[in-house]
Design a protein around this nucleic acid. Structure first.
Lengths: 125, 125
DNA sequence: ACGATACATGAACACTTGTTCATACGTTCA
DNA sequence: TGAACGTATGAACAAGTGTTCATGTATCGT
């Protein structure tokens, strides 16, 4: 047990068995607070069935708000609010053609994220 | 405009311009409700800075609860509660050695998810 | 056996979130 | 210009969430 271990201070466990090497390696690898909280917001937005279905559909097809409401079987208001959330995080983008707004995924990373996520959960069924 | 378009019914927009082909393609590609809500729960759990840092650290190092608390600078209770959430979704697993619980990521998909997610957000900084 | 340690958990609270309802905005068409 | 349509948004409420505090359980050293 390394001597420095005793330096670590935590209200609940001021312990002396801490594996300092592992902690230090983990600390060095850790991402910035900015990146972490930004990623947390992204995951939080995707942590909703409606928005997942929206994003997934938009990763395959460009669709307008009304099409999306029909596709998902939810109200136009829900779609609009949901799209706003996705828009604010730049997950989707849209173009307007007259009064119709056509949405698509803004980022290939998000499509990959969804693919990878579905691979994960489908493995557990 | 295809005739079937009129079949689509939605309280807010019973429209006739719907692009039926796109909607049908999207509907066919859509994942099952089970997969979607399961993925939503996974993202929801990861939609929190503390749990992201926990998961990310555990993707690099096997660590005990107290090490994690020290690493993240949070209370043992927060770590325990957070790990429980991750455990319930089978995102982490642990082994007990005496009174010490060593945690690791349970699934490579989750590590990929985090990597892909960080690539996404770091591109927007 | 006893105290200390490492971890888990339940309750309670402040805070956030998703949905609904109503309404507003911009565009098209007659 | 006015009505109908597609979309956006604000307010309000129920439901869910993260944190704290207190306490419980299991293990270790003495």
């Amino acid at each position: 047990m390394p001597a420095q271990a005793r330096q670590t201070v935590n209200a609940d466990c001021e312990i002396n068995y801490v594996d300092e090497r592992r902690v230090r390696r983990a600390r060095r690898a850790m991402k910035s607070d900015e990146a972490v909280s930004s990623l947390a917001e992204t995951f939080k937005i995707l942590g909703d069935p409606t928005r997942i279905r929206l994003a997934f559909a938009l990763s395959r097809e460009e669709l307008c708000v009304c099409d999306l409401a029909n596709l998902l079987g939810v109200s136009q208001s829900v779609v609009s609010h949901s799209l706003r959330a996705l828009r604010q995080l730049k997950l989707v983008r849209f173009r307007k053609e007259g009064k119709i707004a056509y949405y698509t995924l803004d980022d290939d990373h998000i499509a990959s994220l969804l693919e990878e996520g579905f691979r994960h959960v489908e493995e557990l069924l």
